[in-house]
Nucleic acid binder design. Structure first.
Length: 473
DNA sequence: TAAGAGTCAATAAC
DNA sequence: GTTATTGACTCTTA
């Protein structure tokens, strides 16, 4: 993984010993675990990045022999399934059927293409007929409708194959259609999409057509490239998704489109400001953006004037390089009388851990001009390793502990809070390696979530490398 | 109100 | 130039 040393810090060791934490409200299994661990002394060792890595074995870190501990190596595996090699997709002709999304919509009856088309043309994307929305992606159906003839997409053409009907017939059809929509909508809300497979297919299609993620993300999903990348690499099981299902539905929908419409969807938004015109021209597909308003207002773009600006400590950050850091840090956390008393003993060189603004920055050091861009905080190696080591032991450190950690590492408490929040969420990204059905995965995840820290993968692999170095030494 | 979920977007990595 | 990573923001949920 890419997470290599970002600093030269040579932290020798840091340990955190924690004993009984203040009783906390039970929220989940995770909290249970945290509570259990809070009762036991905790030692966190942060090894130097260029020397012996933090080898956090259960024996080292979990005096109670917590069986839930898992080596990080078992977690990594950012998903790039072998079956998704670009070459395999390259062997397909554009009109060959796609492999099935097994769990999706086979139960759905294929909806009359004509009526679907009319709706598709006249409604916004989100309001598409659910039946069509969830039409089967089985090889049979896909193939028969797409590749039977070069004009297969015409089955969804704006001119539906409705036999020159009288008004009554149309009305009946419309009613039938509406009923089907309602029913399908119900199904749509509950039906499961195999997000992993969908992600693989989308990835494959993007590769096959050389569609940049950024374009697809923006045009079809109305999301950022980074978001798409993350979704494709770490698709959450459908059952774990909430509002995020909409994004996968859009992928799904796009995948269901005939090639012609897929490419059209990608092209149409090439026009600047296209997305500002939504649903105001039902007769013009070029104005029919895939994108619908977000579930909530998107963040105000930076530089728009509404961004409140960086926190004070970012204004003139002292981005001290972590180089030449040589320290031996020990964190001792213990509690007395239901109140955590955190004692931190640090052996840090003067330049070791600035209390503020210790985060490195690639540049910006020589510019006095206030940048309109929000500076991105990047943890120093020491900060990252310490946080990761602590996270291994305590997924939900108390507020007090977070404050202490923040103070010790020269970070804002909110930054520390964000780290743990992100780490908790991203530590659940491990269903990716499992081919089991999502329901099964869910069960597995329940027992593994909190012991996997993908963000630590780098540290782990790094450690391996360091181990070798140590060995040489 | 805190934690979770979804996401942005800076930027590192390739 | 494209993709992956990740700190932080906004909104939702418990």
């Amino acid at each position: 993984m890419q997470d290599v040393d970002r600093g030269d810090g040579r932290v020798r060791r840091a340990s955190v010993i924690q004993s009984p934490a203040r009783p906390r409200r039970r929220r989940s299994r995770a909290m249970d675990e945290t509570r259990v661990r809070d009762r036991a002394p905790l030692t966190v060792i942060v090894a130097p990045s260029n020397a012996s890595p933090p080898r956090l074995s259960p024996a080292d870190l979990l005096p109670d022999g917590d069986a839930a501990f898992h080596p990080l190596s078992a977690v990594n595996g950012r998903l790039t399934p072998p079956g998704l090699e670009p070459a395999s997709y390259a062997t397909l002709t554009p009109l060959l059927p796609l492999p099935p999304i097994s769990t999706v919509s086979d139960k759905f009856a294929y909806h009359a293409g004509g009526t679907f088309t009319v709706i598709q043309q006249q409604q916004s994307y989100a309001a598409l007929s659910p039946a069509a929305y969830n039409e089967p992606l089985s090889p049979q159906s896909a193939y028969s409708r797409r590749s039977a003839s070069p004009n297969s997409f015409e089955r969804r053409s704006p001119t539906p194959p409705i036999p020159s009907p009288g008004l009554d017939l149309n009305a009946a059809l419309l009613r039938e259609e509406q009923a089907a929509q309602q029913q399908a909508q119900v199904q749509n809300d509950t039906e499961e999409i195999n997000t992993k497979e969908l992600a693989q297919r989308i990835s494959g299609e993007l590769k096959r057509y050389s569609i940049p993620q950024a374009i697809f993300a923006q045009r079809v999903l109305c999301r950022s490239q980074g978001t798409l990348s993350d979704l494709l690499r770490n698709p959450k099981p459908w059952s774990k998704l909430k509002s995020g299902r909409e994004t996968f539905r859009r992928m799904w929908k796009w995948l269901q489109e005939p090639e012609f419409q897929r490419m059209s969807a990608l092209r149409l938004a090439d026009t600047p400001n296209q997305q500002t015109v939504k649903g105001d021209n039902v007769n013009n597909m070029q104005q029919q953006s895939y994108c619908q308003p977000r579930e909530y207002a998107p963040p105000v773009p930076q530089g728009s004037g509404m961004y409140p600006g960086p926190p004070p400590h970012w204004e003139a950050p002292v981005y001290e390089p972590a180089g030449d850091i040589s320290c031996f840090m020990t964190l001792v956390v213990y509690s007395i009388s239901h109140k955590i008393l955190i004692a931190i003993v640090s052996f840090v060189t003067a330049a070791q851990i600035p209390q503020r603004g210790s985060c490195k920055r690639k540049e910006d050091m020589g510019t006095d001009m206030p940048s309109p861009k929000k500076p991105r905080l990047v943890f120093t190696d020491l900060q990252r390793r310490t946080l990761q080591a602590i996270f291994k032991e305590t997924k939900r450190p108390s507020k007090e502990m977070q404050v202490t950690i923040a103070r010790q590492l020269g970070l804002e408490p909110t930054t520390v809070g964000n780290f743990f929040m992100n780490a908790r969420r991203r530590s659940m990204d491990k269903w990716k390696d499992d081919d089991a059905p999502s329901s099964e995965l869910d069960t597995q995840c329940e027992s593994q979530d909190l012991d996997h820290v993908p963000s630590l993968d780098s540290a782990e692999s790094e450690e391996d490398h360091d181990d070798q170095d140590d060995h040489l030494l």
